[in-house]
Design a protein around this nucleic acid. Structure first.
Lengths: 229, 229
DNA sequence: CCAAAAGTGTTGTTTATACACCCATGT
DNA sequence: ACATGGGTGTATAAACAACACTTTTGG
């Protein structure tokens, strides 16, 4: 029992290993983007783009592993995180058996820290419709995360996880339109959101360009995803 | 590499192990019931009730593990099976670290085979509202499976997985009422189901008691769960 | 005064709900 | 003949979809 886990992984490929991978989305420039990191794949002896994530510690809860690896690799913490699906095809990793528990996360662009901002080497926020070749089955994981996001947008307040503390209804509508990929009617959208009963007018306004200023709203259940209807 | 996996599990408690557990539901006597098996818990040196399930083989896909252990322990195969959630609290198993990928499954009572019928020792179909003490966190797993079942009933044709090849609309309505725990209006229910467009009249009837015979219908997408609305 | 996004109501359509009687059979 | 579950339609309410003009600001 003197071997480290890393050594064990190398010497005992016939054992099962468990990892977590995190699909973290943001909205930027009218695009749904996902965070990728450049990593060296020992398995394939090349560097490639991959999701943040890593191996589960011996006494670590799954979600904590997701939080820890995300924070460690990208500096991001305190985001909405939800278990997505567990991927375990025996051949998904070429050198050993790795079961990965995928999580998906959302963050407002404003909260992306310097450590994973645009321009940082080894880090990229990529449009989900223009992904590079990805490590293992990470493209499949992202695809499934995206489907979950789209469907949860319909029956929950998950979209608010993309918003900063204060936001305008126009900004919120843009987020919905970006994720759904279709334009929405402004009046119907505002009516529906206000009917949720989970936004309040802050009384403040945002002046932003040569047009009428917009009211700023606040989500009244921050950090919580509510089910609607 | 001469040790068996079973020996390894005993001698290397600091390694991670992966298992699957299956929550299989049926409808019987107006009750939603779940299949339990009596098992000896080495961890706790007692026998107790548990979900069917077992350890993942070294080169076995996750879903196949669920199918294999279910078939081996209960004789049941060829059922609707869907990944539910992965449970991995570090202390969920007292003697080693076991991550379990839970699946949920549905079967029409008519298809339950002799090997897991009522009266077979070590096997029980228990009402979900009257469960005995269960192994580890299996009560929590069942609870989550039940929530998933209820919500999927609203937006998919998952309820048909409880039906035999031919069924009456009255029987289908009973299934819905049992799962939802509330009575439904007969006319509205029939209207809605026929609007799904995935049942067809077989032309046959079922005479069953001293009243008018009922038409028999067939689900036109057997083995498939469709999303509705 | 012009351009640009913010803000606001009404109407028609679709969907969901509530509700009561006759039918075919076995005993 | 009667008890039992099978089968059917309509009227009301609620939810959703379509649609156009006025307001406020910066330049």
């Amino acid at each position: 029992m003197t071997k480290t886990l890393t050594e064990l992984r190398a010497t005992a490929p016939w054992l099962l290993h468990v990892s977590t991978d995190i699909v973290i989305f943001t909205i930027r420039e009218g695009e749904l983007r996902v965070l990728l990191r450049r990593r060296y794949s020992e398995a394939m002896s090349v560097t490639c783009w991959a999701l943040p994530g890593g191996y589960l510690g011996p006494v670590e809860p799954l979600e904590q592993c997701a939080q820890r690896t995300l924070a460690h690799q990208t500096g991001i913490d305190d985001v909405y995180l939800e278990q997505l699906y567990t991927f375990g095809r025996p051949d998904r990793h070429p050198k050993s058996r790795v079961i990965t528990v995928a999580y998906f996360a959302l963050i407002p662009w404003e909260r992306v820290c310097a450590e994973s901002a645009e321009g940082v080497p080894h880090i990229a926020w990529r449009h989900v419709d223009a992904l590079p070749d990805l490590y293992l089955d990470h493209a499949e994981i992202i695809d499934q995360a995206r489907q979950r996001l789209v469907s949860k947008l319909q029956y929950s307040t998950i979209g608010f996880e993309f918003m900063p503390e204060q936001f305008t209804l126009g900004e919120l509508q843009c987020v919905y339109e970006t994720i759904l990929g279709e334009p929405l009617d402004k009046r119907n959208f505002r009516k529906k959101v206000l009917a949720f009963g989970c936004v309040e007018d802050t009384g403040e306004q945002r002046r932003n360009g040569s047009h009428r200023p917009a009211r700023l709203y606040r989500y009244t259940a921050p950090g919580e995803v509510l089910y609607i209807k």
